[in-house]
């Protein structure tokens, strides 16, 4: 695979509220906090609620 092929794949990748929010994915200092946050977000989404990356539902 070359870089052009990879670039063409970008449209198929998922989107998030902010790409920089990916910063939370492997944050070892606060792993439990982020796991809880992630659980909150996934739970809210599964219930059809809109939720931001701080875990607030709207």
């Amino acid at each position: 695979m070359n870089l052009s092929d990879l670039e063409n794949e970008i449209n198929e990748w998922g989107t998030g509220p902010s790409a920089m929010s990916a910063m939370s994915d492997v944050q070892p200092r606060n792993a439990i906090e982020f796991q809880n946050l992630r659980r909150t977000i996934l739970d809210a989404r599964s219930r059809g609620l809109e939720v931001d990356y701080a875990g607030n539902t709207h």
Partner: peptide
């Protein structure tokens, strides 16, 4: 730094992660 500082604070996650790193 692709993101914008205010948004990094606003999303509740990014700025803290940046400072930690």
């Amino acid at each position: 730094m692709h993101g914008e500082p205010l948004s990094s604070v606003g999303n509740g996650v990014s700025m803290k992660a940046i400072v930690d790193l």
